[in-house]
């Protein structure tokens, strides 16, 4: 391959647009993560009534991140956003033990969706900075993730949208999963 075509190839990679879908229960921290990814102020975020979208440019990708409100009433609308999703990011409030069942059920339903089949899933075990947070390994056990998630790449990542720790680690997994997809 000549230098020019290599450059061209690189250019093409650089331009790759990626559609990321951010889902999870209300209050999980989706919008806070979205704003942290875009390096915006996270101190004045309101509960989402519809959805937010942001484009984040990183080396190699243009990420179009869709953050959909998680209130129970509007979860039926999640399916309107499934089409052409490259990666699903599912956000869990790691301190909300009362709703681990509820969030597990919602995640399982997503995994059954035809339009999301084979789509890699990153699970952010968010709010790890808080005193009553549960470790990702315990969440994975409680939600029986390793038996529930089949036929796709997945990862659970401890993070805090507030301190921004772990967010980057999760995104690096996202990029690597995209690399793997490309090879197919």
């Amino acid at each position: 391959m000549g230098l020019l075509s290599l450059l061209r190839k690189f250019q093409k990679e650089a331009d790759r647009e990626v559609r990321i879908l951010l889902l999870g229960l209300d209050n999980a921290g989706k919008t806070t993560i979205l704003k942290a990814l875009a390096d915006e102020d996270i101190t004045h975020i309101m509960p989402t009534q519809g959805f937010n979208i942001k484009s984040v440019a990183t080396t190699g990708f243009k990420l179009n991140v869709w953050d959909i409100g998680g209130q129970k009433k509007i979860r039926p609308y999640w399916k309107n956003y499934f089409e052409n999703t490259d990666v699903l990011i599912y956000v869990i409030d790691s301190t909300d033990k009362k709703r681990f069942d509820e969030t597990g059920v919602e995640l399982l339903e997503l995994l059954e969706e035809e339009k999301l089949s084979k789509v890699p899933v990153l699970i952010y075990a968010n709010k790890q900075d808080l005193l009553k947070s549960v470790k990702p390994s315990e969440i994975a056990t409680a939600l029986q993730l390793s038996s529930a998630i089949r036929d796709r790449q997945w990862q659970i990542q401890a993070c805090s949208a507030l301190t921004k720790e772990g967010i980057k680690d999760g995104m690096e997994w996202v990029y690597s999963s995209l690399g793997a997809q490309k090879k197919k």
Binding site: F10, E13, T58, T59, G60, F61, Q128, D129, S133, Q153, Q155, A158, S160, T163, E165, G166, K168, D169, M171, E172, Y175, S176, G179, A180, K183
Partner: peptide
């Protein structure tokens, strides 16, 4: 972020191993 072109699929065992050497977070 690392070298994008160099990424390849990591098997579960590799990911597992990485968990042990994960960075130390404030929590």
């Amino acid at each position: 972020m690392g070298n994008l072109l160099g990424f390849c699929y990591k098997s579960e065992t590799v990911l597992q191993k990485e968990e042990d050497t994960k960075p130390v977070f404030s929590w």
